[in-house]
Design a protein around this nucleic acid. Structure first.
Length: 307
DNA sequence: AAAGGCCTCAACCGCATCTTG
DNA sequence: GCAAGATGCGGTTGAGGCCTT
């Protein structure tokens, strides 16, 4: 037996919102907020809509500080960087673009940016056949900016990006180096102070004990990695808190298994790591409050998306 | 001018994850 | 620990406007 629907679809209104409905929802939200319950909201607000529909309308259209209209070049660059790194995790990408919604970015990517990367002028219309042909041509020309060893094998880049001229949007050469690091995907990692100027991230035993070598591979980009952060009682920080949390003395980052880790300069990593993160949301600006013993926590599952 | 096709984007759907009791 | 409900997310759809032929 399936889940009971959140609302009676035969009764609630569907389709485009009228200005009157918008006004009702906005008025209610400004007065009372969600009250922690979207499902009950439409009834309270006098709207004949599903709670999910109200939530979507508010988040994507009505809430304050929503940006509509053209995306800037900077925003394009950020979207491309993140898409290349994490794939179609639109909500994460949106979190890096204040005022933009995941839906907006998703639509923008699917309708415009992808074509822009294919080299079409923004306003130029192409027939489906023309698009297909140009895509095929570019794929044949191997425009993909990463070396073959990264393009193949365990490498699972967002498929729609392959063949596109995205190199101008990527923080190369750092990205290629980072993506070929030996961190296994989808597993727990540990993170610790290596010395006064370095941070070491390495796989936990259970994730890196395989003898078949699989743990030395990394799938480029699209995967979220849960980190277990612990540092044996020293002050614990996440990667980005090292980068942005006032640890100016931190100069190097090591990715690897502790034995044969790769070394990166912090300044090279910074462009890949945004200052907004789960860590900041957990501890606020006062990162020193993260000091603890026996630290073992996981950030929200989908919040970490880089290294 | 008309018809057909394409493009955009708001909204929906279904599934996964989180929260609560 | 479990089940039910709520929320979040990404993929998909479809209406309406625009462009091409």
């Amino acid at each position: 037996m399936g889940r009971a629907p959140c609302c009676d679809k035969a009764i609630v209104k569907k389709g485009p919102w009228s200005p009157e409905e918008d006004r009702q929802l906005k008025e209610y939200m400004e007065k009372y907020g969600t009250g922690g319950n979207w499902i009950a909201l439409p009834h309270k607000a006098g709207l004949n809509r599903c709670g999910k529909s109200c939530r979507l309308r508010w988040l994507n259209y009505l809430r304050p500080n929503i940006k509509h209209g053209d995306f800037t070049d900077d925003e394009d660059r950020i979207i491309c960087n993140l898409y290349a790194t994490i794939g179609s995790r639109w909500s994460i990408i949106a979190s890096q673009l204040p005022g933009r919604t995941d839906n907006d970015i998703k639509n923008y990517w699917n309708s415009k940016l992808k074509k822009k990367l294919l080299g079409f002028p923004p306003s130029q219309r192409k027939t489906h056949q023309q698009l297909q042909k140009q895509l095929e041509q570019q794929q044949q020309q191997q425009f993909f900016p990463y070396p073959p060893e990264i393009r193949t094998g365990s490498f699972s880049s967002p498929p729609s990006l392959e063949g596109m001229q995205i190199s101008q949007y990527l923080p190369t050469p750092m990205s290629a180096t980072t993506f070929s690091s030996p961190l296994p995907q989808g597993s727990m990692h540990q993170c610790q102070v290596k010395d006064s100027s370095s941070l070491l991230i390495f796989g936990s035993e259970q994730s890196c004990s395989s003898s078949d070598g699989s743990c030395t591979q990394i799938s480029y980009g699209s995967n979220v990695v849960d980190y277990e952060l612990c540092n044996g009682g020293q002050q614990m920080r996440s990667l980005e808190s090292f980068l942005y949390g006032g640890m100016e003395e931190t100069q190097k980052l090591f990715l690897g298994d502790g034995e044969a880790s790769l070394e990166y300069n912090i300044e090279e990593i910074k462009p890949l790591v945004g200052p907004n993160s789960w860590c900041n949301s957990l501890f606020g600006d006062d990162l020193s409050s993260a000091t603890t013993k026996d630290i073992s926590f996981k950030p929200p599952g989908k919040a970490m998306y880089y290294y």
